[in-house]
């Protein structure tokens, strides 16, 4: 098992957001997490990535058998967990190239590999750029600064390609993308998918799932996974919206 989440609970500023999440992800699988706005999807992604503002109040997470919650955010990243941010951050004056060179080499060091020299690094960049149709010019600019929404999201997937994570969590990578950008991003993700890694796709539209086909679909609502199924569940949500799920939950409660 690549990722095991048992009864995970988390709060922010004393407010409970995640109220007992259970999820198992095997290598080679694609999971989709859907749910209405404010249900806790980004919170789950942030807690897994180690964002300090969120307090974990219960439960456990195992990543490759290791206690994930014990690790610092950078250690989680080096262990192979990647988060494509819903709102990628801008860092003025730091080019994506320079940023990634630092990142790739710190990750490599953790994995016991030699740092890449400039030539090999550029070669690797060239290769990965093609996956998401990134241009060199964009990579030489300050990280995400003045990038369009689509460029930012493509840059996230490009970074994922460079870092070769075992588990990638894509938080609303589809939001704000036009259909062409969506296709580029999705095909990038599909090319990176393999039997040794897994992807968790967070979205509240099923549109993206036409391109990245999930093995499992989970519905997150009010901090709990209230329904799980296969890709047919996503279709059903697309057709009927979330109200019936909400109704089911209220009835059950």
């Amino acid at each position: 098992m690549l990722l095991t989440i048992n009864n995970l609970q988390a709060s922010i500023d004393g407010m409970d957001i995640l109220k007992g999440i259970n999820l198992n992800v095997n290598a080679g699988e694609v999971h989709a997490i859907m749910g209405p706005n404010g249900s806790g999807k980004s919170t789950l992604a942030s807690v897994l990535a180690g964002r300090e503002e969120y307090e974990v109040t219960g439960g456990e997470v195992l990543f490759n058998g290791k206690d994930l919650l014990e690790l610092a955010p950078e250690e989680r990243a080096r262990e192979g967990l990647f988060l494509a941010f819903q709102y990628p951050v801008e860092i003025p004056g730091v080019s994506t190239t320079n940023f990634l060179k630092t990142a790739v080499n710190q990750v490599r060091e953790h994995r016991g590999l030699e740092p890449l020299d400039a030539v090999s690094f550029l070669r690797l960049m060239k290769e990965k750029m093609q996956l998401v149709e990134m241009s060199q010019a964009l990579l030489n600019r300050s990280l995400n600064e003045g990038f369009s929404g689509g460029e930012k999201k493509r840059n996230e997937i490009f970074q994922m390609a460079m870092l070769e994570p075992q588990l990638a969590i894509l938080d609303e990578t589809d939001s704000g993308l036009d259909i062409d950008a969506l296709r580029i991003v999705a095909s990038g993700v599909n090319k990176l998918k393999g039997k040794d890694n897994a992807v968790i796709v967070v979205t509240h539209y099923q549109r993206l799932l036409d391109y990245i086909v999930p093995d499992f679909v989970h519905v997150l609502y009010k901090g709990r996974i209230v329904k799980s199924g296969t890709k047919e569940l996503a279709m059903e949500l697309e057709e009927k919206g979330y109200d019936w799920i909400k109704a089911e939950v209220e009835a059950g409660a």
């Binding site: 950078e74 951050v89 860092i91 730091v94 940023f99 630092t102 710190q106 953790h110 970074q159």
Partner: peptide, 20 residues
Amino acid sequence: FYCNQRGIDTEDAVALIVNG
């Protein structure tokens, strides 16, 4: 946090941000 999430430790992240 963004830097951390890419495997960059905080010290290096600060250096990177400040130099930028």
